[in-house]
Amino acid sequence: MKTRYGMVIDVDRCTGCGACMVACAAENNVPPGSPRVTPRTGITPMLVHKVSNGADGEGRREAFLPVTCMQCEHETPCVSVCPQQAVQLDPATGIVMQMPQRCLGCRYCMTACPYHARYFNWWDPAWPQGMEKSLNPGVAVRMRGVVEKCNLCHARLHAAQEKAAAAGKREINPHDYVPACVEACPTRAITFGNLADEKDPASQAARSPEAFRLLARLGTEPKVYYRSTRPWVRALAEPDTGRKEVQHG
């Protein structure tokens, strides 16, 4: 069966707690920010934005919009511009892979990404003394000068594939491969799965009439979907059609 991993984020269920952000950083050995770090220079492969309908007083409504790499399927912008072939769309899984070993640090991909979902390592990765013992052995630490982004916790996919292979199976058990942000969400707002499988809950959620994608008009076919019953939240998907205010995280 064809596999296209993706996720559906239910914006109505997101409370903006930030557990996905911390769990993502811990899983992927993202270093804590330096004292000088800002939202502009930090590394947050999963970043929750606070958005509002732009009204004031009791009419004001707020929501939280987790933004990560959208895993664009069609003419993936970052793949198109990378001079080093450090970004590739995995034909087997649909995951847009970032290979820091090949990255030159030119940051073309950051410019090309319409979602600002890529981050540059401005500093050497550093943890307080001794804390390197707490790093996840399944993920290599990225060096200064390279770009990184969400790989849908590719190390977990490798572990699931190894487990399946050890059991003599070709297909992984879907329960063995769940990205850290999906696992961490206390409200189960993120549904992850194979979008190419019509029976998969994620695929079904993506086909809901309340599902939408950010900047879908660009035609990059992102594999991260959102869902909301609130029209003003759905209007956020296309910035020129109704959004009044967005506070960037």
């Binding site: 930030g18 950083a25 993202v30 920010g33 770090v37 939202p39 930090g42 947050t44």
Partner: peptide, 14 residues
């Protein structure tokens, strides 16, 4: 935890 910078410094979430 040091990774709380993700919540408090590297985003404007809190």
């Amino acid at each position: 935890p040091p990774l709380a910078t993700k919540l408090y410094q590297e985003s404007s979430l809190r």
